Amino acid sequence: MASTAGKVIKCRAAVAWEAGKPLVVQEVEVAPPQAMEVRLKILYTSLCHTDVYFWEAKGQTPVFPRILGHEAAGIVESVGEGVTELAPGDHVLPVFTGECKECAHCKSEESNMCELLRINPDRKVMIGDGQARFSVNGQPIYHFLGTSTFSEYTVVHSSCVAKINPEAPLDKVCVLSCGFCTGFGATVNVAKPKKGSTVAIFGLGAVGLAAAEGARVAGASRIIGVDLNSNRFETAKKFGCTEFVNPLEHTKPVQEVLAEMTNGGVDRAVECTGNINAMIQAFTTGNCFKCIELFGCYRGQLHPFVDATDL
């Protein structure tokens, strides 16, 4: 990789040229990283519903052509001026909510919504010089969430990269850069269920399973999974779910079912679908509890990631 440092790299990427149209796998040019940037060789990338949502551009500002993708794992190919904490060869995860470590939010114990690098789905270029690092025949190809992992090489801000243990299997830990940390982190860091408490998890997709794992690690004694697909319960057991409720199998509202099961309501509820009905059910299903709604308000910042019911 050292031979490519400072040079433009030609590689394959899946480019979204128009909203809702099939991605085109084609050759793109990836410019070298500038100051405080790193160029990554992406080895594994996952597909998150958020990628699909912005590809469809329904209700969103259409930004095309664009390289989507934000849940991935790779290796540092080269670094730009001023980067000291990362070096070529490091195994890393790109992170779409970076932290500059200097602003008031980064220094606060209450928020990590960095003033410089907080999630911004409308930002399409690098913050350093306002230019894209991708191009095709001289035409700029725009970035997505500062990561754009649907490319064999990508350029990101150095504070949007997490260095990981080189022994970690990259094909597994790629989901840590989005799906897992969203559910697990919200449960452990925000909901903070007490040992022996009861937690309801609405939605048992990837984020919901991570939330269940967070509740298990926190010591919850009852973790009730709520999902319209009963086939998900067997998998959910592996992540800590002790009970399962399918709202379609009951004649009364699911919040009433949960209240009867738990002598009045759960201690914590984590809503992981983005479905409005599920949000209402989660907010009304407990005693004095914290309800975390992951898709209406991501880490405190409102965004339109609603209708993510197939996660």
Rank of each mutant, 00 (worst) to 15 (best):
Q34P: 02
E249S: 00
C288R: 13
I75F: 11
C288N: 14
L86T: 02
E260N: 03
F305Y: 08
A72C: 09
P62I: 07
A211K: 00
G6E: 14
K58L: 13
P22H: 11
P65R: 08
V270D: 01
A16T: 03
V76C: 05
G59Q: 12
E249A: 01
P33Y: 02
T251G: 02
C241G: 06
L209T: 07
E71S: 05
A57L: 00
N231K: 14
W55F: 06
M1E: 09
M126T: 10
L311H: 00
P304K: 15
V76E: 06
L86M: 09
A210W: 13
Q34G: 06
F305D: 10
E234F: 15
E243S: 08
E260W: 01
D267T: 00
G138L: 12
E260L: 06
H105N: 10
V8G: 13
R123L: 13
L248Y: 01
A308E: 01
I276E: 01
Y153L: 10
I67Q: 07
F54I: 06
P140Q: 06
G240K: 14
I164E: 03
P193S: 11
E18H: 10
E110S: 08
K290S: 04
T97D: 06
P88G: 07
A220G: 07
K238P: 05
A236T: 08
E29I: 03
G89C: 11
P193L: 14
S3Q: 15
A278E: 04
N112H: 15
T84K: 15
H303D: 15
T182D: 11
A162E: 12
S3M: 11
A162N: 05
I280V: 11
E81R: 11
N229V: 04
T61A: 13
F64H: 12
V38T: 10
C48P: 08
K194S: 04
R12N: 06
E152D: 06
V15G: 08
D227R: 02
G130E: 02
Y298N: 09
C48Q: 13
A87W: 07
G205F: 03
A168R: 09
Q131Y: 10
G146P: 10
E85Y: 11
E213W: 12
G59F: 14
N287S: 14
P94L: 12
V63E: 08
V125E: 10
C11I: 05
P32N: 04
P121N: 04
M279F: 10
C174E: 11
R133E: 13
A73I: 05
E56P: 07
A31H: 10
